[in-house]
Structure formats: C-alpha cells, structure tokens
Write a protein that binds this DNA or RNA. Sequence first.
DNA 1: GATTTTGATCGTAATATTGCGATGCAATTT
DNA 2: AAATTGCATCGCAATATTACGATCAAAATC
Lengths: 117, 117
Amino acid sequence: MQFRDTDMGATKTDLFTKEQNELAAMAKAIAHPARIAILQYLVRKNACVCGDLVEELGLAQATTSQHLKELKTAGIIQGTIEGVSVCYCINPKVWNQYHALFSNFFKEVDLSGGNCC
Amino acid sequence: MQFRDTDMGATKTDLFTKEQNELAAMAKAIAHPARIAILQYLVRKNACVCGDLVEELGLAQATTSQHLKELKTAGIIQGTIEGVSVCYCINPKVWNQYHALFSNFFKEVDLSGGNCC
DNA sequence: GATTTTGATCGTAATATTGCGATGCAATTT
DNA sequence: AAATTGCATCGCAATATTACGATCAAAATC
C-alpha cells in the first residue's frame, strides 16, 4: 500500500507559522534577478511605465509584465493607470516593512560562546 | 519559423548583473518556510543535529536534509561531522553579510517628492 | 564482524516558476 | 469609427523546486 500525498511537490505551509510563511513569501518575491532589477530601477527613477522596463531588462513584454504582477501581488510596488500606460512605483510603506522584517530576521548572531561544533 | 530558446523556463541570468543575481540567490536561499524555520531554530539553539530538525519541522528526513543542503550551499550554515551525526550551525560571517546586503538593498526610500503617479 | 544509528543521495512524482508568442482590452490617436 | 498604443492575460513549453521512500555510506555499538 502506498500513501500518496495529494499535494506532492507543493510547499507544506501548514507545518509552519504564519510569520515563517510570510517571511518566506517576502523572500520569494525578490528571489529573481529581474525583480531585483525592477526594484532597483524603480528606486533610482522613482517611477516608470512597463515599456521602460521591457527595454531596461531585455525580457519580453509578457515576462516583464508577469514579474511586475508578482511584485504587485507582494504589495511592494503599486501601479496606476496613466492614460494608455501604467505607472509603477515602490510602495514605501511595504518597502519599509520589508526592510524592518529582514533586518529583524538577520539580527546580530552572537559569536561569543563559540557557537559551533 | 520559430526561435526556440534552448533554456526555456530557466532564469536568464546573463541579462542581469552579478550583484542582482547574487542578491536574488540569497533571497531564494531563504524563500521557503522550512529554511526560515531551520535558521530560526539554529539561532535559538545555537547548534543542532539533523535529527532534531526532522522532529522540529515535521518534514521527512530526506526533505529536511535537502533543505539543509541548500542552506549549506548558500553558505549561511555549516555542518561538521560529530561522530555519527552532523552538527549544524549558523555561519556568522555569511549571516552578517546577508544582514548587510539586504539592509543595504532596502535602504530608506524617500517619500518626499510624492514619488508616485 | 554484525548491527544500529545518522544523515546524504538517488529516483520519482508532483507542483511551481520562468519565458514567450499570441491574443484581448481599454484608452488614445488618427 | 478605425487604427494604434500599452499592457494584461492565456496557453504552452521547459526548467526548477518540493517532498518522500528507498538505498547507501560511515561511524558507533554490540
């Protein structure tokens, strides 16, 4: 006989705390060089439309749009319809939350006490 | 006619800078709740063996070992053979690098100048 | 030396992510 | 109104990740 997990290959989120799942989701949002590049570009330029990013990144329009969607879903950017195009920018509130939560996670580890085996 | 990219579905790392790829790789290393949980446990306990984590996480031994391997590959933890078991702990040097790089990436965004559309 | 313990690795199954062409849709322009 | 522009979404192909049972290898114990 054989137990077959219905969701094999999927992350077992139920084993972890809300905080762990959320921090992992935040990390996943920026776990792609294109999304890092988008965020850096937005920080530098303050705002831009999707077409700018297609040029800047060198990815297809569909792919770029998809990465934008993921960042938007994560809440770290926002987009507003600007006539025929869409203007994207950082959501500063969420951005600063990311800063705070990652900083907190990576708080100093004390080396005193020769921490390792 | 049809162009068929030989590496469809794979990340186009060549389009991005070394820094962008590295930061994305770092984010990916912690982009799973099990790996977050492992790191938190290690910070709390200072060190542990793989078996402890299998109990703690509730994942299969093979899965736990795989996550440990990813963290080890990323450099953020290290493992030393301790008789019949393996003792894992945070690599404080790399840990602090993560802290520094993420902190730097999420530096304050200035809201002055009503940055969005 | 056989057994046990511990963890890595292999093989496999399933879901998730990445990427792109094609298409659709809404606003603007002609 | 027709054409164009800008972007989202669909559908597909391919790679990547997650998860686990089974097996293997090394050290400790019997």
